[in-house]
Amino acid sequence: MSSSSPLERTVDKVLSQKESELISKIDSAYQESLRNLDSSKSKLNSEYMVIIENAKKQAENLKRQIVGSSRLSARNNQLVLIEDSVKTVFEMARKRLLSLHKEPDYEKLMKQALLNSLNEIGKTDLIIECNKTDSGLVRKLVDGINKEKGTKMVAADENVDILGGIRATSSDGTLTYDDSIDSRIERLKPLIRKNIVQILRGSERESWSQKVE
């Protein structure tokens, strides 16, 4: 007959109690780990989403910056090119204006400029300057106006380097009326530039639409 001793039975009992205790502890630890893992997953997921969201925002900002600055620099290059074309047009116009004195209305224009100078300065004794080509015409017109109006205008002995038109100075040198072609160009330059650019942009658009077609 095999019968265990009370000591052995107690040991077995303690062992089985400990075993079930340990198993339940392991089980609960396992469950807790699963729970932790689950919560970590969602935490990780939300952190991952935040990182991705931030990265997207940063990428979007960077994209905006890069696109913005490239557009700006392309626009600026276009402005420089347009300005070069405007300068070329002005140069061409200046060359053509050198032969303005051959135009039939030029004498009228010069006479009007002389009369304007008398009117604007408000004095009758003026010194009139012009370029070398116009000096003969100016002398003739000055004499004519002096006879007609009783003024004391004189054509200057020395010529000035202008495209055309006149510069009138009062005899005491305190007032100057500049009605040269150069000063007219300078005065109207912003408006002329605008017109040139409109023409350039118009032709750009035309050529672009032709390409598209």
Binding site: E120, G173, T174, L175, T176, S183, R184, R187, L188, L191
Partner: peptide, 27 residues
Amino acid sequence: MSESAAIEYTKVAEIKGPLIIIDGITK
């Protein structure tokens, strides 16, 4: 934008700080 030519004056009467006073002004 004005299309008529401008008058230039050469008679400066005084320079005073940031101001200059021009004499003989007609217009």
